[in-house]
Write a protein that binds this DNA or RNA. Structure first.
Lengths: 193, 193
DNA sequence: CGGTTTTGTTAACTTAAGTGAACGTTATAC
DNA sequence: GTATAACGTTCACTTAAGTTAACAAAACCG
């Protein structure tokens, strides 16, 4: 799994042996069981998460009801808002599959940025790219109907439709589970016709 | 207006005189007239924009119809997706007010990052913060109804409701202008009751 | 100015999502 | 292995958003 990480990083910057060793020497890989909660609403954490294998879900609990808003899978990472603004987290994070997760903390980050400034460049570049991608995701969400959003998901992330429970997928799409069922039913009828 | 920028930067990192001069020596401020288009769909640009005064709108044209998705106002910046992935832009950018805009390009950025690595730190920190804020915006959008989204906007960005044309605000809220009118009418009736 | 375009609202009608409940089907736990 | 809970779908009904059209007000332009 360390190789997966190093391959991923190497896609963006070149690493020499020293740098590879520096990464490997960090003891950052964790096995997380399905269902385990990584972050609770109200908690102030300083950990960042990066998925090597498996899936992290972010969700809110509103009036006792879970609202899933994001799923992070292989080679995707999430730095909770509370890490950066030092306020209680607004959402929960849990693993919805048995997962291998890289868990980082600010001290570790500072240390590696200091030793290898190149990593800070990498993080700038990655977060800028993610930021613009995220902006486009939000744009697409705004200009699409629920049915279009489901179709886009089928197109762009068919794996999510397969591996995520449908009621969690529904709130990810900004609708209720019943509406997702209806959309699927509607699409089936149209396909048959 | 240079002072505004330097004040803004100073909120995040300390600047010495050399660094301040380096910023001032860049000739980056532009006066843009209301209506002027900064970026067209299909265009590959390498410019980044940062609003000193005024407002930049991002919008798509779908079936001949404009769909506004974001508004950038004082001390907010936007790096179009096309700058980072070198593909044609999916959206337009224009100014909807007479504005003063800082326009950057990658060469300028590279130069200043090289001379003052501190600026790259700043950019990493800012884009990480923006990224997590953006994620929460998307979350809130997903878990809210159109009416709640309008109320949130009134709460968090009342200035936008005032300065943005309502039909542009509607698509920003993910709805049609008629629905926004109805929501306002509904809220008025409830307030009177 | 006066004419035109853009903007904002209202209305009538259509369509789709929200709601609450029922029910079969998986999972899960003991 | 069976009781229990969680999940996914369907249904009937309610509510709100989309659509099309009309019209008044405001902004813009020659």
């Amino acid at each position: 799994m360390k190789n997966l990480l190093i391959e991923y990083i190497s896609e963006h910057i070149e690493l020499n042996e020293d740098e590879k060793n520096a990464i490997e020497s960090l003891n950052i890989f964790h096995s997380i069981k399905k269902g385990e909660v990584l972050l609770k609403q109200g908690e102030i954490s300083h950990k960042g998460y990066f998925v090597i294998k498996g899936c992290i879900r972010s969700y809110y609990i509103i009036n006792g009801e879970e609202k899933s808003t994001a799923f992070y899978t292989e080679l995707e990472g999430v730095t909770p808002h509370c890490v950066l603004n030092n306020k209680p987290s607004e959402y929960y994070l849990n693993c919805i599959e048995d997962s291998i997760i890289l868990i980082s903390n600010p001290e570790m980050e500072a240390e590696i940025f200091q030793k290898f400034p190149k990593f800070e460049s990498l993080c700038r570049i990655l977060s800028e790219k993610l930021l613009t991608k995220n902006q486009i995701d939000l744009d697409k969400f705004k200009i699409s109907s629920p049915e279009q959003r489901y179709k886009n998901l089928l197109e762009n992330r068919p794996d999510l439709v397969q591996r995520i429970p449908q009621h969690q997928l529904a709130s990810f799409l900004g609708i209720k589970p019943q509406s997702l069922s209806r959309i699927k039913a509607r699409m089936l009828v149209k396909k048959i016709k």
